[in-house]
Design a protein around this nucleic acid. Sequence first.
RNA 1: GUGAUCGUAGCUCAGCUGGUUAGAGCGUCGCACUGUGGAUGCGAAGGUCGCGGGUUCAAAUCUCGUCGGUCACCCCA
Length: 434
Amino acid sequence: MDKIAAPRGTADLIPPESARWQDLEARLRVVARRFGYGEIRTPLFESTELFVRGVGETTDIVEKEMYTFEDKGGRRMTLRPEWTAPVVRAVLEHNLLANGPQRLYYLGPIFRYERPQAGRYRQSHQFGVECFGFEGPEADVEVISLASDVIGSCGLEVTLSINSIGDEVCRPRYREALFAHFAPHKDALSPDSQRRLERNPLRILDSKAPQDRALVESAPTMLDVLCEPCAAHFARVRHLLDAIGVAYVVDPRIVRGLDYYTRTVFEFQSSDLGAQATVCAGGRYDGLIAALGGPPTPGVGFALGIERFLMIVERRGSAAALPQAGIAVITLGAAARERVVPLVAALRRSSDGVPVTIDYNDAKIAAQFKRAERANARVALILGDDELASQTIVVRDLVTRVQDTLEARGDDAAIAERVLAWYRALGPANGAAA
RNA sequence: GUGAUCGUAGCUCAGCUGGUUAGAGCGUCGCACUGUGGAUGCGAAGGUCGCGGGUUCAAAUCUCGUCGGUCACCCCA
């Protein structure tokens, strides 16, 4: 029988890598809470219709990347390819906007049927926030600031680019201006851009084809065409970013792929990600909620790719080594192994998060020490015939190799307390542990 | 969906223009060393050479297909 492997573009998350995920997830939740965002969790699958209407019928996501299936009741379902549409659906379903503006964050998997590549998978994970109900530029800046804090708290260097893509008033004008600019030179454009010219001229702006470069350089920018309210909004966003000390560059070539964006769009990019430079991206989507049948409500948010984020952390070598922690129990002989079971139980009950591990196999002491080391334990607790006879136990600091003999009379809870007190007295493992 | 490149032990890889029992380092396990861990020496376990077909007296090696990894395009986090 053939071995079954994880599906293409998916990955198992196993120790010690899973610990890094947990660490990042904890940081993300802390920052979100600090900004007053509450967590929302939505189903892994939704009606296909939600994404068709919410993301845009002609987007790549809807046209070719969705995992869609029919359930046994004949309903068309799709594995969540992005979070914003489901979040808006849930917000409307529970009528949250009746209570005024809402701040929500999410953290979990998305699914897109794409060819795997650096920083791109069929199941990937996103953290993001959505801020509903504020029309003013302060909300744009709040959301950018939150993203910036998340990235900064991990010590990463990325560049923030911002742009405005206008609204329903000025964007159509811009499309026409772009079309007028490129159409006369259609034959000089790359084949991809010739296609984009008809479908979505904005996309030509971030073309990577060398032959498009000159024409893109000379193209009019959105910022030239912005209507008065959009221009004012964008100016305020820039002013407020300056005020809170978040560095950015204005990049008129930033275009978002999803139909629902309006006005402010932004991307955080890293040079460590190959072709997938964007680690976090978002913007304002003032028309989306109404488009999904809700009351006209402004919104702004972003999504951050967990895999890409962690990839930068690793390539920058800023991944902190896991500290040596925990107690590894070493027993010698059947009598000790039996005696130690209730003692380990007592240790775990009162260990308050200190991991207590034990190897039940009858290995030599040297081998058990090696395993304790591999498990990254800080302290070894040794129990053999000698200790049983003298009613003691030996504790040894695996970092300094200093050891001690402790009294082991009385009940197990008291012995466990003695061991844990000895453990805690060592303090955190110092640099030598790393 | 398009293109390039790679799949040999748990990991990293060697294996020349096809030639018989497929190797190394690291790791694992054992012994030297009845109870003290990053050392040394000796030894052992571990492989349907991704999978399937073809060419050949003979295929890890050539060929076709397929699956998977990696990278790029499209597009996106």
